[in-house]
Design a protein around this nucleic acid. Structure first.
Lengths: 123, 123
DNA sequence: AATGTTGTCAACCAGTTGGTTGAAGACTGA
DNA sequence: TCAGTCTTCAACCAACTGGTTGACAACATT
């Protein structure tokens, strides 16, 4: 049930524009227009991005006349951090213990290099 | 430049099936077939999922005859954690300080409830 | 009341994603 | 060598995504 929100949170942050907006909102609240300003896209597109962030629970919006100030919700980050830490610890614990040892005893070459797959331009 | 990988990592983890596989791999390495077993999809689909995880740098694959054992790469989690922590701290620091105070002085109702937007079935 | 500002909704479009099936590559074992 | 196992590649399809434009709701100002 939380799983669904976790999916939305990760999906929301998979977009560099949206991550950028989160960075901007970490500095302070901002209206949709203010958030749209630095980008070369329509306000409608930005509005959609904010909706995605809001649906993920990362952002809340309040009312100020026509304006809709956006506020970053820090608590949701904990949900992510918790998920990550669980498996990071689990994996790191395993690593350096007997797992890689056993692997070498089995004789397969561990850790094929995956780092040279693609080097796409940064956004 | 790292931004691109960060996008891939978040996108990879946005899928519950892939998160599940990460959870499985945290316990120990597994072949594609072993990973595919619990799911009701074709092996090809699972192979694609693994490719996504590998492209994100979350998983590496080695060779063992026809088999392709998958191994969880814990280091990449740090990339994510770093990004998250940066903005979480920044936002939480702001929260409880003068920001929300000023907001109340401006008289707008902060924090519209976003939690009742949708309650989709868990995956 | 009329106008301008701010933001969202609706419809549309191209590109991506997650699934399928079929074929083939790579290896083991009889 | 021939059959069987494990995995990936290729082509295809429906659904989703991120963008667009146009309309309009809500509010402030004149």
């Amino acid at each position: 049930m939380d799983d669904d929100q976790l999916s939305r949170v990760f999906a929301a942050l998979a977009d560099p524009t949206r991550r950028d907006m989160v960075a901007r909102l970490a500095v302070g609240d901002a209206t949709v227009g203010e958030l749209a300003d630095p980008y070369d896209v329509s306000v409608q597109a930005v509005s959609k991005h904010i909706k995605v962030l809001a649906d993920a629970g990362l952002v809340s919006q309040s009312k100020d006349a026509q304006r809709r100030p956006c506020h970053l919700e820090a608590e949701v980050f904990d949900l992510m951090t918790k998920w990550i830490e669980r498996y990071r610890e689990q994996a790191q614990e395993r690593y350096g213990r007997l797992d890689s040892l056993l692997a070498e005893m089995r004789g397969d070459e561990r850790r094929t290099d995956h780092r040279n797959r693609q080097q796409g331009a940064a956004s």
